[in-house]
């Protein structure tokens, strides 16, 4: 087996034989990612309505469904209505602390079987049970850490009380967010990524960070667009204006 040292030695030997094709530079990163992120946030404090409108347009172009509500307590009613139209009952949700609101009662009030994901690690038996619940769920409720106007993208970071699969296994995914998540461009999202990773211990640096741009789709059969091949076939964005 090749060791790391041998492998790198070989790379260096071959590199030494050439100066490359032309003088080239990598992308210029923000010198201080935290300050750069703060600057983006300040810009968005004024421009968020434009970002939201752009997001709505792009998201709908991807066949996403956009909803706006005044407060988190109105979220269950929106979900309940869609669930009844789709004859869906089984719902899983990020934990109350991850969502920033406890919607469990609200969902149950809509007649939904709602299970919230725990904040703390569970033992193996409980984990197996949770997995079965997740696998059978029809509706998944998550937050969103960014909503990108330019592309209609929702960005979700996995972590405590925010499993990777809540936005993946169910057929219907609802992401709830407010104006703090809005950015206008992918470039701004890039600044946020840099800031999240400035400290490797920052929980916002993952496990997994997912950029979700519309429903799961495939065009593998005769280039016919088909939704919901593995992931959700519908994605709903619920904007809370508060």
């Amino acid at each position: 087996m090749t060791t790391r040292a041998e492998f790198m030695e070989r790379v260096r030997r071959e590199m030494a034989r050439t100066r490359g094709l032309f003088p080239a530079r990598v992308a210029e990163r923000p010198a201080d990612p935290m300050t750069a992120a703060e600057l983006v946030r300040r810009q968005l404090a004024e421009r968020w309505p434009q970002a939201l409108e752009r997001f709505r347009q792009e998201f709908e172009r991807l066949s996403g469904v956009f909803h706006a509500v005044a407060s988190p307590s109105e979220v269950p009613a929106v979900v309940g209505r869609i669930a009844r139209e789709r004859s869906a009952r089984r719902l899983i949700t990020w934990s109350a602390s991850a969502l920033g609101a406890d919607l469990g009662e609200g969902f149950r009030g809509e007649g939904l079987d709602a299970v919230a994901m725990p904040d703390d690690p569970v033992d193996e038996a409980a984990a197996r049970e949770l997995r079965a619940i997740n696998a059978a769920a029809e509706i998944g409720i998550t937050g969103a850490d960014l909503a990108i106007g330019e592309t209609g993208t929702l960005v979700l970071v996995s972590g405590r009380g925010r499993p990777r699969s809540t936005s993946l296994l169910p057929e219907y995914h609802f992401a709830v967010f407010d104006r703090r998540a809005l950015v206008e461009t992918l470039e701004q999202a890039g600044v946020m990524l840099e800031a999240w990773h400035a400290d490797p211990a920052d929980p916002m640096s993952g496990g997994v960070i997912n950029f979700i741009t519309g429903p799961s789709r495939t065009a593998d059969i005769e280039l016919t667009l088909t939704r919901g091949v593995h992931g959700p076939r519908e994605v709903h964005a619920i904007f809370v204006s508060r």
Partner: peptide
């Protein structure tokens, strides 16, 4: 497409705070 449906950034195995992965 402007972006593919999913761009997934994976950093390390499951974190201690995560239920799955």
């Amino acid at each position: 497409q402007k972006l593919s449906s999913y761009t997934t950034l994976v950093r390390g195995p499951r974190r201690p705070t995560e239920l799955e992965g």
